[in-house]
Design a protein around this nucleic acid. Structure first.
Length: 586
DNA sequence: GCCGTTTTCGGCCCGACTGTTTTCAGTCG
């Protein structure tokens, strides 16, 4: 997809302009456009072909022309002209914390810094501390920034960040000076990756509390301490900002630091329209605070319903809140079962029995045991013989457990082969209670090939759920390129559910794609893809992702009662499905 | 560079911390 390439180009354009000392609002315009493009589901090339680029927020006449040029020629003349005489490596350095455009420009001009090596050499040289605005501490700050930059090139997966944050929060709360402590920031919004942690506290003695918190056992390095804020690095190399606020401002601060940046900018704009000022201390009319202690009061004072933190990305939630149309998004408690799990029969670590018992402990009404098909050799995919043995094993387990819940669905995660066929013959597929199908190989096919492959697979009446549709691995494998809208349309028509895979490494569908799919009327399924009993609990990450995509429980098949689920699984393909959907939602 | 109940020009969110400064610029979130 060309979207990411163009988003990066606009980001770089903003940096180049900042480096050259350009107009800051022009710089902001490029940054805003980059964020806006990343939020898009549709391919920019397709939007350009329809002539609808200027309908994208933040894209006007100039930027749409630049996008059009990139789509046709693979380059943007204006960008290349702006970059003339500036080494790309120099612009890369602006990712280093503490090294902004002004500082970098000065180092470039006065100390001939052009890339990482010349920057390091320059910092080692005594003359650098004599530059205007420089001193020993500033040099030391940039050095620390470089260390951080090198260490934090990769953002943390939410599944890594959340347990660390919970541990830290527990330590902070056990300090007797701390009255209250909560996580804000991107972790509270449950983004799929987390850059750093934001923690808010209230305390009777703020400076002393902050000082003590910087001495917690998990703290490895103190970056700064003030009267209202401390910044530390904790074990695992995670950057944590701890901010202290007064109780009457706590809600305002939670709102402010939960973000996102775009959500906050939009909110403050609305405050201004009401003649109010919104900051981390509260909502003010003149100097009088009209809200601040509770987060919901901030929104209420702006005539808005409060929305879940996961929705606060400025993707329409503010308009929805103003219209009192915030949807009731799915919660963990809505789940009645897990439809994507593995056992020791293929590459799982827990036995069938253990998986079923854990599902019972979670209070599930049903669980599908979906081990791999034979093409997945590394995962010990089941051939016909072993699959038949597993069917017998499941039947035995059902007999032993008699009427105890959960109901057990004998299933498989079937590979969608390169030509769109499923990895089991029809007679075997017919013996399965549930078929979850996904792409596990031949990722390099063209966009049209992948699209066709999915549409062929969906046309097979055996398939119930399309597993991890983009097959991405966050931070290590790019998503498959295909015509998402066409695949969603096919899935809606066939009554096939699209998965939101809850594995922290996948989270696939993405938030934006899940939203698009639901809006198109698609059914969804949230699966843990667990390879052990412990991983079954991690389905919460799938719930977070669904909430970020505004997904409501009614769209998710594994929130349905057993009776409705089995009716859906036993459905006939084609138009009957639509009637079935109406019956379920009624 | 974008945008419009402030509408084709003149705005564009706001405050804390740091370091080097003696009143502020740069950076960050």
């Amino acid at each position: 997809m060309v979207n990411e390439e163009i988003a990066r180009l606009f980001e770089r354009m903003a940096r180049v302009l900042a480096f050259k000392g350009g107009d800051r609002f022009r710089i902001m315009a490029y940054e805003r456009a980059a964020v806006s493009i990343r939020d898009l589901e549709q391919d920019l090339a397709a939007i350009a072909a329809e002539g609808k680029l200027e309908e994208i927020p933040g894209i006007g006449k100039d930027l749409s022309e630049m996008i059009g040029e990139y789509v046709h020629k693979g380059r943007i003349g204006r960008y290349e002209r702006e970059c003339r005489g500036i080494a790309p490596e120099l612009i890369d350095l602006m990712s280093i914390p503490g090294l902004g455009p002004k500082t970098l420009a000065l180092l470039h001009k006065k100390a001939h810094v052009n890339d990482f090596d010349s920057l390091m050499r320059c910092l080692d040289c005594a003359a650098v501390a004599k530059l205007k605005g420089f001193g020993a501490k500033k040099v030391e700050n940039i050095r620390r920034g470089i260390e951080l930059w090198v260490a934090s090139q990769k953002r943390m997966l939410i599944g890594v960040a959340l347990p660390l944050a919970e541990n830290l929060l527990e330590q902070i709360r056990s300090n007797r000076l701390v009255e209250r402590a909560e996580v804000a920031g991107s972790l509270r919004r449950c983004r799929e990756t987390i850059g750093d942690l934001d923690i808010l506290i209230t305390s009777k003695d703020t400076p002393l509390a902050l000082n003590q918190l910087t001495k917690l056992p998990v703290v490895r390095q103190v970056l700064e301490t003030g009267d209202t804020k401390a910044a530390v690095i904790i074990e695992g190399g995670i950057h944590v900002d701890i901010r202290a606020v007064a109780a009457e401002s706590f809600g305002a601060a939670m709102q402010y630091f939960t973000g996102s940046k775009r959500h906050n900018i939009h909110l403050r704009k609305i405050a201004r329209e009401h003649g109010l000022k919104c900051n981390e201390y509260g909502l003010f009319r003149g100097s009088r605070r009209i809200a601040g202690a509770k987060e919901k009061d901030i929104y209420a004072a702006l005539h808005m319903a409060v929305m879940p933190p996961e929705m606060r990305e400025d993707r329409g939630e503010i308009e929805a809140a103003l219209a009192c149309k915030i949807p009731k998004v799915i919660e963990l408690a809505d789940l009645r079962g897990d439809l994507h799990t593995h056992s020791t029969w293929s590459d799982g670590k827990s036995t069938l029995e253990e998986m079923v018992e854990h599902a019972e402990a979670l209070g599930y009404e049903y669980i599908a045991l979906t081990d791999h098909s034979p093409s997945e050799r590394v995962a010990h995919g089941l051939d016909r013989t072993r699959l038949e043995k597993k069917i017998e094993a499941v039947e035995r387990l059902r007999r032993i457990r008699k009427n105890r819940l959960p109901h057990i669905l004998m299933g498989a995660e079937v590979d969608i082969l390169g030509d769109g066929r499923l990895d089991y013959p029809d007679d075997i597929l017919a013996r399965l209670d549930i078929v979850v199908a996904g792409i596990h190989a031949a990722f390099k096919q063209t966009k049209d090939q992948i699209t066709g492959r999915y549409i062929d697979a969906i046309a097979n009446p055996a398939i119930d759920i399309l597993a991890h549709p983009t097959s991405r691995l966050i931070g290590s494998r790019e998503p498959l390129e295909f015509d998402f809208d066409a695949v969603v349309r096919a899935a809606v028509e066939a009554g096939v559910a699209l998965e939101i895979n809850g594995s922290m490494y996948r989270l696939d569908l993405s938030d934006v794609m899940a939203k698009t799919a639901q809006e198109a009327g698609a059914l969804l399924a949230i699966g843990s893809d667990a390879h052990s009993t412990a991983q079954m609990d991690q389905i919460c990450y799938g719930i977070f992702q669904a909430r970020r995509g505004w997904v409501e429980a009614r769209s998710v098949v594994n929130t349905w009662r057993w009776k409705d689920l089995t009716r859906w699984l036993g459905r006939a393909h084609g138009n009957k499905v639509l009637q079935f959907r109406k019956a379920v939602s009624a």
